[in-house]
Design a protein around this nucleic acid. Structure first.
Lengths: 362, 362
DNA sequence: CTGTTAGCGCCTTCAG
DNA sequence: CTGAAGGCGCTAACAG
């Protein structure tokens, strides 16, 4: 087994002391090392193909240069967009990003935060996926708190309520506005495709949507709120189930059913795309026969046709802002603010209407 | 600034020695610590909210539990799919994944490998993005070699040629077969949307495609091979440029132009989707008016309509296999094999024909 | 079984 | 400006 080259080797090879080698290499605080020695050290390092041990540096410096991102699913375009934002912002600060996917498992979420904490990550960004279960939430909050007192930067994207600075997404308001806009278009009959019922973000979007409808005197029967995994396949499955029992006009261009054209609201664009595929597989045209809306305006999904009406979340910026929040300027975090009343940053959530929800004639 | 709790604190609080505390906590090699002491240590750790310093562990163990993935762009569904595979495989081995995006910058690629090497990552997976520039390639090879002798696991996804085990994608063969299949469908007029000319993977796909066509006596004029960024927007731009000067039937359903319907081959599905959007914006129907094919069969893009003809790469599995290759069983890597003749693993690349390339009538 | 003692690779006072 | 020495947090031989 090949041995690693250490700083001592370099120093020895260059004929200087360990300290000098160290100074020459990462030359902190002005060039306080004689040029010729410095050159010798550099040459030695190059010759020996020296690679400084970041772990050793971390242990003595007390901090690393990695920021950890915990996301639900990188395969999902939504998660990927947030990750892209985080990575861009991190890269500007010369930080490395560690990504972990929880796959909707709350326990995994906690484990990943633990791991990041152990690595002494400079910051942790927790994206989405809050669960209703109070026990795991408490565990998570504890872990976050522990990490915070350790001096790590922290930010959460999504729903407020965790002891950390949060980039708040207006899930409730956005869905509510969507409902109103859709009602304004003439829709009166609705169904909802949501996630598992303990997924708070999905829950918020559903309640916002139903609230908005209620405000204009419309309700959605309970059995028309279907839950499934918040994935493309979940959307497909839920839509299939819905289609199995609803009456949808196919080919008339007007829509039928008991009371006008049905509008299906999927709580995420990803689910909506799955739903779209399910409809297509039954020769039901999205737009003319059945209307569909999603949530997120995921960039990678903007090319879907017909264009998907949705609520625009600045996904990439969410990632950027989260690292801004987690790693503020050069101040020491955690010293000034009350950790129990962390800063919140609100973000827009505007309705975007496209062809998947054409105005209802008449 | 809050102090971190160390193992010494825990040991002290529990009234035991450092060594005992260590043993009790990560209890390696059978329970060799008295239950009551063990309990006291655990209690102390919990009470103090102790979080072991992974860096310190790494430095003494000589190895970490992170695998680094270097990919072009996580925002691109292709990169995301590979990442998903890597993360799944890593998770099975209890490893954490660090993801870095190079954004098509060869220098960044090297910097990321350097960083991973410094962190003493357990393995490095380099996905795609090989450049023609010999200097950066050499630098990269050096870095990889240095990392390899340090005992790190290593795997490359894509084109062989780097001093590392490689999961080889059959870009040349796949494109070639695609060309033949398309010719078999009746197409005789082609254009190609490729990446920057120093991007080897793109280059391979183009040459495979042209080769295939040449084998059946068809050629593509140089000016009909357009290059742009290998992104959705790059595809859009290149297609727009192409459309500005080609004659495409629009609405006749038969296609026109000088010699039958044009088929556009984009070297990646992502580009193809952009190209599709460009065509749509000009009311040119993909399928009836103009045919389009991509490469990769990116899972997230399978719902695109009309279905995109492409060459299927097992993207997610590519990621999985790469970690298998980088972290073989329990053998010591690097001791047996010749590093200059690293193992190669071939993968399928089958043609998938969908609606975007209907058979040409007549 | 438990405690003491070396390091691991590096940075950083502290004297020269 | 340079070198020697101490310590970061932890594990792994060693003794007891």
């Amino acid at each position: 087994m090949a041995e690693q080259v250490t700083l001592a080797d370099v120093a020895h090879w260059a004929g200087v002391s360990l300290a000098t080698a160290s100074r020459a290499l990462h030359g902190a605080g002005g060039r306080t090392v004689r040029p010729d020695l410095r050159a010798r050290v550099l040459a030695a390092a190059a010759e020996l193909d020296y690679s400084p041990n970041a772990n050793a540096q971390a242990i003595v410096r007390g901090s690393t240069s990695t920021v950890g991102l915990v996301v639900q699913d990188l395969g999902d375009p939504t998660g990927a967009a947030v990750a892209a934002g985080v990575m861009a912002a991190a890269s500007e600060r010369d930080l490395i990003v560690t990504v972990a996917a929880t796959g909707f498992d709350p326990a995994l979420q906690i484990r990943h935060v633990e791991a990041l904490r152990r690595q002494r990550a400079r910051a942790i960004i927790l994206a989405g996926a809050r669960f209703a279960d109070p026990e795991t939430t408490d565990r998570l909050a504890d872990e976050l708190r522990g990490y915070g007192v350790g001096g790590g930067g922290l930010a959460v994207i999504g729903r407020p309520g965790l002891p950390a600075p949060t980039v708040v997404t207006d899930d409730v308001g956005g869905s509510r506005r969507l409902a109103l806009a859709l009602h304004g278009l003439g829709y009166r009959r609705f169904a909802v495709l949501t996630g598992p019922e303990d997924l708070l973000t999905a829950e918020d979007r559903v309640s916002g949507f139903l609230d908005g409808l209620a405000a204009v005197g419309t309700t959605v029967p309970d059995e028309d709120v279907l839950s499934a995994a918040v994935t493309r396949d979940g959307g497909y499955a839920a839509m299939t189930e819905l289609l199995d029992r609803e009456e949808i006009g196919n080919g008339t261009g007007t829509g039928t059913g008991s009371d006008g054209k049905l509008l299906v609201f999927a709580v995420s664009d990803t689910m909506a795309v799955g739903a779209m595929a399910a409809a297509r597989d039954r020769n039901i045209r999205i737009g003319p026969d059945l209307a569909l809306a999603g949530f997120g305006d995921t960039p990678a999904l903007r090319d879907v046709r017909p264009g998907l009406s949705t609520v625009r979340l600045p996904l990439v910026d969410l990632g950027r802002w989260a690292v801004d929040l987690a790693l503020p300027g050069h101040e020491r975090p955690g010293s000034s603010a009350d950790p129990e009343a962390p800063p919140l940053m609100s973000t827009p959530a505007d309705v975007v209407l496209r062809e998947s929800t054409p105005p209802v004639p008449g």
